[in-house]
Write a protein that binds this DNA or RNA. Structure first.
Lengths: 193, 193
DNA sequence: CGCGACGTTGATTTGCCTCAACGATTGTGG
DNA sequence: CCACAATCGTTGAGGCAAATCAACGTCGCG
């Protein structure tokens, strides 16, 4: 029972420790969802219903602008949380989409029951605080890279940080995440050898 | 007593409610610091000692690269927290500087006593989780703007969001925050009328 | 097999940078 | 309180990184 959530419990254990009892409370708040390749976990216009923890597979969060181009804002792989917090907090329709890149599985923590859960297992409040603190500073670092490196430097750097991800994912997603065009990425790669 | 921290208590009240007792516990963990115009709140190489809440004035967080140019990564005005979480979490020397733009005052929450405080006033854990969640999503939005707008559009947008800030702050800081040169900002403004 | 999604390559264009010289404003010491 | 320096902003010429557009290769899948 609950075997499927094991990666999540292990992840939590890295930051806080829960008693057996607390773990089973948490378990009772979780559900999960399987997605096929290219399926949407969240669609623009929907209110983001909760927090997603990636148990298997990978995702990207993107926005579609007026001209129809997709701008990738974030991505996630196993053991990452991915959520549109703007929509979840405000309970307003999301401006983003979240799409599965591969066949994937997520654990779902429903927004509506989250506060309730945090009261019963206060350690989780801390867990999320720490996670968010890291996510926030990583995102600031990313901005710093965007402004201080050329496109090519960003690609090399990203490739060093997440070699596995670069293998798994179509190039146009990487290019958009790094803030340039697929054509440009192709030209960078051509130089490599 | 503690009058000076009033803006902080009011800010906290918007997110969680503390008892009189909890408020006075919090108070006993706070100190404050006054800075003159252009003085550094945090200097590159230092380990960031804690969380700063801006009671009065404004700041910017920046990095200096090899070539000596300053890249502004974040800014903050009254009622914002500003901290290098990377350094604070890891307890390693910071890569950033935080400088006062005007004469300013901050409340200081020491990292070393923070966990202790959170145990005595668990609501604060929640407060910071919520604050960080907002900061994180604001930063993601910022990335989305960086990639989907031209420099000029970003400036117009920023000017709408924070008109007061644009008035108060030297243009070269705005330019750097928005990711272009002061010269370019100057040319945008020349067109305006 | 053939179609659609993805990647490549080249020619042209453009947004913004760099560098340099010149105002304007602020602040500081004599 | 003025003079002069430092800081900040403006303007223009030339250059480059990356976008755009278009045409063509290639691979996986129905």
């Amino acid at each position: 029972m609950g075997e499927i959530y094991k990666p999540l419990f292990e992840h939590i254990r890295k930051f806080v420790s829960l008693s057996k009892e607390e773990e089973s409370v948490l378990l009772s708040y979780l559900s999960h969802k399987k997605l096929k390749k290219k399926e949407l976990l969240l669609e623009q216009g929907q209110i983001c219903p909760g927090n997603y923890f990636i148990l298997e597979g990978c995702f990207f969060l993107f926005m579609t602008d007026e001209s129809g181009t997709e701008q990738v804002v974030q991505f996630g792989i196993e053991n990452w949380w991915i959520t549109d917090y703007v929509s979840m907090d405000s309970q307003k329709p999301s401006k983003f989409n979240i799409r599965a890149i591969e066949h994937s599985t997520v654990a779902v923590l429903d927004k509506s029951r989250q506060d309730d859960l945090f009261q019963r297992v206060p350690q989780l409040e801390r867990y999320f605080r720490v996670i968010l603190q890291r996510a926030f500073s990583a995102t600031l670092q990313r901005i710093q890279f965007i402004f201080s490196m050329t496109g090519e430097e960003r690609y090399r750097h990203f490739n060093n940080l997440f070699p596995a991800f670069v293998q798994r994912v179509p190039q146009y997603i990487i290019a958009s995440y790094l803030g340039f065009t697929p054509e440009f990425l192709s030209k960078i790669r051509a130089k490599k050898v």
